[in-house]
Design a binder for these strands. Structure first.
Lengths: 187, 187
DNA sequence: TTTGGCATGTAATCCGTTACATGATTAG
DNA sequence: CTAATCATGTAACGGATTACATGCCAAA
């Protein structure tokens, strides 16, 4: 038997906001949670089956006119389990930052090669920042009165502050590497 | 057959700085790389075997006086492979932040319960910050002239800026939740 | 008619963690 | 003598990704 994973609760959490099909969940994970959470697609359907077996969700097959869909609805028991999990202390995952691993050993590279990593990283973080900004707009426009809004903004704010920190780091690191490449000429 | 993992290169990287035994690698991963990288212990020995089979490291059994140790030394081929990997663009891992997942769905909790998560998180980040600071000291003291130092500081700086961002977030989030708990009385 | 999006699933594989298992040496 | 640390590995399990597999419907 299977111990509980955060995956289960990501799905229960989304369903707590309204019934959805597996396909819709797949989309919702990547669009709504995408900036801090991901589920591989091959994970969602098996998880839904298991949640249904445990009576935390119920499946309703819709065949009304459209092509058949299986829509999952969270049960009272599901909500309870979700709330219980939400109260438990979040487990930090093991750190594994490949960029930093490469930086740590970067003396084996030319400074310009290390700088290239940093440049690309900065660009990625710029993209992330832009995405966060548009997400924030979207939140206000589509959920201005939603009582969830506050919490969504808190989560988003985390990503925003991190991206800012990453950008600042990239600038500092680029600066250091530039100085390494052009050793001081003045005395 | 096995595709390459960053695990392999974390080990090759450490060995590029000097030969070590499996046990010493285990310690080094957690002490030197610990703030941004982790390897589970059951991973290191099998990886060393594989690296030896691929001639990227060589094993030397020491039995001189002390209890037997297997010391691994990186080969020229190993250094080449490491450098080649270092040049390739770092792959970001899939995002999975359990704290944010809980925050995102936190309307299902009492605001005070959400605030408790944030308090604990802030404390964890304070601990991290202190650890970074002592690491920095240690770097300067023990490796003041090491040409690797610059890169180690760059990696460390990343973690420092992130921790600062996390602390700032925790403060902001705590503030918002406090306001939620005591609704405005003045008009 | 063909492409793209909606829709649902299974299978193989891999990576990683945890637990198990054993034993030597050294310092207190 | 005994606890801590040095030291080396194996096995079982579980979770996650990727690839495979299928097919409908609507719009261009």
């Amino acid at each position: 038997m299977r111990l509980e994973t955060a995956t289960d609760y990501a799905i229960l959490g989304l369903l707590s906001d309204g019934a959805r099909s597996g396909y819709e969940l797949r989309v919702a994970v990547s669009e709504e949670l995408g900036y801090f959470w991901a589920e591989s697609f091959g994970q969602i359907y098996p998880t839904l089956r298991r949640l249904a077996r445990e009576k935390l969700v119920v499946r309703n097959s819709e065949r009304t006119g459209r092509r058949p869909r299986n829509v999952y609805t969270i049960t009272a028991a599901g909500r309870e389990r979700l709330a219980e999990w939400l109260r438990r202390q979040p487990q930090p995952r093991v750190p594994r930052n490949e960029l930093l691993l490469k930086m740590y050993f970067a003396r084996q590279l030319e400074p310009a090669e290390a700088a290239a990593h940093i440049q690309r990283y900065r660009q990625q973080q710029e993209v992330a920042r832009a995405k966060h900004e548009s997400l924030e707009q979207q939140f206000y426009e589509e959920h201005g009165k939603d009582p969830d809004l506050m919490y969504w903004l808190i989560a988003l704010r985390y990503a925003q502050l991190e991206a800012e920190a990453h950008l600042r780091w990239a600038e500092e690191a680029a600066q250091i590497l530039t100085e390494l490449q052009e050793p001081a000429q003045a005395n």
